[in-house]
Amino acid sequence: MNLDREKMLNLYENMVKIREFEEKARELMLGGKLAGFLHLYCGEEAIAVGVCANLNDKDCITSTHRGHGHIIAKGGNIDKMMAELHGKATGYCKGKSGSMHIADLNIGIVGANGIVGAGLPIAVGVAFAMRYKKMDNVVVAFFGDGASNRGTFHEALNMASVLNLPVVFVCENNHFGMSTPQSVHQKIKDISVRGTAYDIPGKTVDGNDVLAVYEAAAQAVSRAKNGQGPSLIECKTWRHYGHFIGDPEPYKDPEEQKKWLARDPIPRFAKQLIELNYATQAELDAIKDSVKEKIEAAVKYAQSSPDPLPEDVFSDVYAE
């Protein structure tokens, strides 16, 4: 991988930004400041960041219930995200989405989604429109190992394949479909093998290695943009927390948890950056401090923002 310093530090900053955003959201939730469900992305940051670093603003993504990381990596505004988590009128969706449906169509975020596996067919439609309009763009569908057992996964891969559409399917295999271990929910170990059934190249990468993810995504994106059709990338990873905040995680083996925490993608990448002389520890600390300030500012923005008006419940149901 030959990335310049700026790009390397940008990968790092985005990973840290996701981590800090999630840790802050967790703190707020546990402190009773947020309502609803929160599905944290901690531990999986290298995937969203490594993939989205290959995308421009006209390239699109569809995301999942665990979507904060994708949105931040795609360039989402953390003030508007934090305001949305607080249900405020200044949030991305005016307080109608909460955590699970955040979108920003202006920068290609077609939306997080509360239904497992629902983003894949929508991504196929976005790709169809891109080709229809002769756009030179690509759409990434993020989804988890659990979603790979849904019919929508199979229908979408087949449809994208047969229509030869510019989609990159990115499976974040965190080894659990909610509480159910991968070994219980499917017999295969590498989800990438499912590409074969649809004549789509499938590749498995270390999802906690941001550069490995970046490289695999770069190939798939370039393939799609060259008119060679969809790809499937499986990124093996681990969520540091439970499925949602409040999940007691009785299904996790403490030894496994320990093993994966040692592979945390952020300190791992920090070590690489220092060893390869891209940055000093002090520079990385400065990045983290600056990110923390931005997160604090986002919380302040959210908490000082107005609530929606009660009558707003009626707006945006239909387009006039």
Partner: peptide, 20 residues
């Protein structure tokens, strides 16, 4: 299309979101 009703409607949703 293939006999894939979910993907047919999903395709429509994605395409419509893009202005088709």
């Amino acid at each position: 299309t293939p006999i894939s009703e979910s993907a047919i409607i999903g395709l429509g949703v994605g395409a419509a979101a893009m202005g088709l």
